[in-house]
Design a protein around this nucleic acid. Sequence first.
RNA 1: GCCUCGGUAGCUCAAUGGUAGAGCAGUUGACUCUUAAUCAAUUGGUUCCUGGUUCGAGUCCAGGCCGGGGCACCA
Length: 496
Amino acid sequence: MAEWGGLASQVPMEELSELLEIRRGKVEKLRELGVDAFGGGASSFADKARSQQILNAYEEGKIVRFAGRVISHRDMGKSHFLHLQDELGKLQIYVPIKGLTEKDQEVFKLIDLGDFIGVEGHLFTTKTGEKTVHVSSLSFLGKALKPLPGKWHGLSDTEQRYRQRYLDLISNPEVKQQLRLRSLITREIRRFLEDKDFLEVETPMMQAIPGGAAAQPFLTHHKALGIPLYLRIAPELYLKRLLVGGFEKIFELNRNFRNEGISRKHNPEFTMLEAYWAYADFEAMSLLVEELITHLALKFQGTERLHHVQKDAEGNVISEKVIDLSRPWKRRRYEDCIKDVAGEDWFALTAEQRRERAEKLGVELGADLEDFEVSNQVFEKLVEAKAMNPLFVTHLPKELVPLARQNRENPDLVDVYELIINGQEISPGYSELNDPLVQRQRLENQAGEETQKLDEDFLTALEHGMPPAGGIGIGIDRLVMMLTGAESIRDVILFL
RNA sequence: GCCUCGGUAGCUCAAUGGUAGAGCAGUUGACUCUUAAUCAAUUGGUUCCUGGUUCGAGUCCAGGCCGGGGCACCA
């Protein structure tokens, strides 16, 4: 990597590979011609049209200015065809050498694949029917000193794709499309919530006591104060402080950090939406989520019946899945979900019998699982992993959800839903617990088990009174995976 | 953290333990409608690193680094 960027200039010429040396030589030659290879002195292309706009508003003979990265070049001797790539597509340009000034002819010879250039010319259509710019003048805007990945296979080395994402974006348009879609989705989520009078807020990313979830935090250090700080694992406890403070409809859409393993479904930093709605409950929140997600599916996929097809390099179908988001979505109690897969008598069994049956059903159990964890393993492996279409699982046991309100009829259960789509947890929703005494007790129980520190400041806030509220979280990365058909969380995160 | 597969030219990939190769890209030349343009010639290598076995290692062995997939962790 030593030859990259600014470091490159420190590497003596003779140590550069021939490929790089030649490109640097071209920068020199351009300078001799009075041209800055990096656009100094060139007129601005800030107002350039996008390739799509040019193609859509095509008029024979219309003069256009266009700029982009050279991604292909077909040399016919006295006439050349190149494709310039811009953010949303590409546009072909036609360069008849004789139509250029003598200087531009020299300059044109120094163009490589990967360079950014700007052109001016009129539109015409080639024999083969491609709308094309007939170039009359050109400008160098940014020379590439390194070559692009190959044009046939593009870039497929996964390591390099993730490490040098910019190369992935240049050579794999579908990757760019998917990552663009992520931005459009988060933009639309904000718009959706703002239309319903939710207000976006920002709460601390660095916290003295990480709370709001059960996860290992990342640890950092504040020099001036001389104290340890943790990257947040959830914003929940701060958002609730805002409910105490009088905000009624708020959301935060930003990063959480959890010190966990990395997998197809997990990244240590991930994006979470949390929204709180004072005086609402988990059922109102489930309707809100249902409306939001179907809205996103319709807006970005044009249908509530998502059809994702995975193909290999030869175009053979590897896997196919359908996710049907048609409303209303299924709602089922946690214990009924388990009975569906493990037998009506599941909860009548002894703890020992439950273990045996779980193993018979093919669910691997760790040695020292508590009884409710055995049931939950059955739930995760046999219900959650297999639920493709939306399923609201409701009324979970309180041990699983320490920050939610207890059910009136059965205080062992909590008023929550867990939304599963695509075999993954997409969104939990709670009727939030606003009883400070019960909350203290539940957190103390949890703290005992997991040696977590109690957030006294949060409990103090609750003691000042918090309105009842519905709250939701939505894992944005997984939501985007579900909506776009990405099989790995890496495919929906720009930089890992 | 564990299991497993992989790392060879700028890119995608070959190479029984025996001279490291191909296609594309690059370079030079030909060609005024190409789009994987075509044709001819040609340059290019720390085979991830370190050590070992061997007459000889890209290949076998050990350790390490980096990555993929899986498992574990993750209310």
